[in-house]
Design a protein around this nucleic acid. Structure first.
Length: 423
RNA sequence: GGAGGGGUGGCCGAGUGGCCGAAGGCAAUCGCCUGCUAAGCGAUUGAACGCUUAAUAGGUGUUCCCCGGGUUCAAAUCCCGGCCCCUCCGCCA
């Protein structure tokens, strides 16, 4: 959530960030709701204060056994007034909050201005595009020919946008998860295996709800939703807590399946396993002091990049422009892996700092030395999207004969297998 | 699924209608004492929101004893609903 004090004291900072995001929201209306809310609180506070004092008088009068009829009548009336006012106050609070929850995070000043993904500047590149003596195939061709990807049967048992992995494909998915988790665990991240179903409060804490309800799968009859990313359960691990300063920064790595309704993506990436209702991802999540968060974002990006480097996959890094930056994020780097079968770079990791936006929603705080509790900064990044990593391996390491070389880093996780063949 | 017990501050734990933001203990911080450490002695130590303020300093008001309703002039305390935890039984992986 945006900071109500910032909204009050520097509404132009909020307006400017919205303009850069290419979003049009009625900031003045929100400010009015805030004022209504505060006015009602003041009036209620004063009335309650008065009521308290008169109630004490009544108690005293009753002890002295004097007639209290007038006082009781006055207090009954006061109580009714307060009740009515509190009803109004509840309504005003709810109105302010439901509107405030729809405001995106305020962008960091160094986020480049731009309308869409086409405006994202490339800030780094690693490796080179592999050269092929033949036209490289897309992964769905490679995978089906090898018998390791089955889209038709997956659609039969579920629906479209699901994939069944078979044999060495299934083995490689599992190998990638282990490889990534071992790598991050060895670099200072604590492994987490969280619940994959989470409640609405958690989804509100990280920013998926209320705005992005349509992107989520929900269980019937209970307040449980399929996690769209490990970001949600892992960030909310510390919801409502006051962390000790010495514990920071906290760094977690978690594997989870991710479930997304892909409501707005009809007709997009329909072939292959680029955009699925279910996919595996290893996620990195950090909690830190505000002054550390910029450095932690760079570290997060480096940790995600390390996975691609060890696998030998060519990629580039972009900073998302202002119009392309996600709702909860203040600044985001995307890692884009080269996919020769599609002659394109595709997002394989997204690393963001959320500044205090999620911390305020989920009430995640720490106690600075000698001070009162302050909001932490939260960050997260994919390290990496496992399905897309599998896609990248198939497309980048495909051979003329239809086989696929297994990256060195993965062979130990696949019983020494060095090549996927259709045999 | 059945039966019972329980959710109070950083932790433990008292509190069955007003004098309770809450006894007592632990922990922590500061000070005294001390060759050092421990012990001992004294003091301090919850959060949110609002008003005030340059201030996340100070002052001040309100709210908060799991959550939401109700009774009452007044609720941590009484009543109803929900959530969560524990124990036993059943069932299951």
């Amino acid at each position: 959530m945006i900071d109500p004090k910032l909204l009050r004291k520097n509404p132009d900072a909020v307006r400017d960030s919205l303009r850069r995001r290419r979003m049009d929201m009625d900031v003045q209306a929100l400010i009015c709701k805030d004022e209504t809310r505060r006015d009602l609180q003041k009036r209620g506070d004063d009335l309650r204060s008065h009521q308290k004092r008169r109630s004490e008088e009544l108690a005293r009068a009753m002890r002295m056994k004097v007639n209290t009829d007038t006082l009781r009548a006055e207090l009954r009336d006061l109580s009714a007034q307060i009740g009515a006012l509190e009803e109004e106050q509840r309504k005003a609070d709810a109105e302010f909050e439901s509107e405030a929850l729809l405001y995106p995070n305020v962008l960091l000043p160094d986020v480049p201005d731009g309308a869409t993904g086409d405006d994202n500047p490339v800030v780094a590149t690693w490796g080179e595009k592999p050269a092929f003596a033949f036209p490289p195939k897309p992964h769905w061709d490679i995978g089906e020919r090898l018998g390791i990807l089955d889209f038709e049967r997956a659609a039969k048992i579920a629906r479209s946008r699901f994939t069944a992995l078979l044999g060495a494909g299934a083995r490689m998915e599992r190998a990638l998860i282990s490889f990534m988790m071992d790598l991050h665990a060895g670099r200072g991240y604590t492994e987490v295996w969280p619940p994959f179903l989470i409640n609405a409060a958690s989804l509100t804490g990280t920013g998926q709800l209320p705005k992005f309800r349509a992107d989520l799968f929900k269980c019937e009859d209970v307040d449980l939703w399929l996690a769209p990313t490990a970001e949600v359960p892992v960030t909310n691990l510390h919801a409502g807590e006051i962390l000790s300063e010495e514990a920071l920064p906290i760094r977690y790595a978690a594997y989870t399946p991710c479930f997304r309704a892909e409501a707005g993506a009809a007709g997009k990436d329909t072939r292959g396993m680029i955009r699925q209702h279910q996919f595996d991802k290893v996620e990195l999540v950090k909690f830190c002091r505000p002054e550390e968060s910029e450095a932690e974002l760079e570290g997060l990006r480096a940790d995600a990049e390390e996975v691609l480097r060890r696998l030998g996959l060519h990629y580039r890094v972009v900073v998302l422009s202002s119009g392309d930056t996600g709702f909860a994020s203040a600044k985001t780097y995307d890692l884009e892996v080269w996919l020769p079968g599609q002659n394109a770079y595709r997002e394989i990791s997204s690393c963001s700092t959320f500044t205090d936006f999620q911390a305020r929603r989920a009430m995640i705080r720490y106690r600075p030395k000698g001070g009162s509790p302050a909001l932490v900064h939260t960050l997260n990044g994919s390290g990496l999207a496992v399905g897309r990593t599998l896609v990248a391996i198939l497309e980048n390491f495909q051979q003329a004969d239809g086989s696929v070389m297994v990256p060195d880093a993965l062979r130990g996780y696949m019983g020494g297998l060095d090549r996927l063949t259709s045999a």
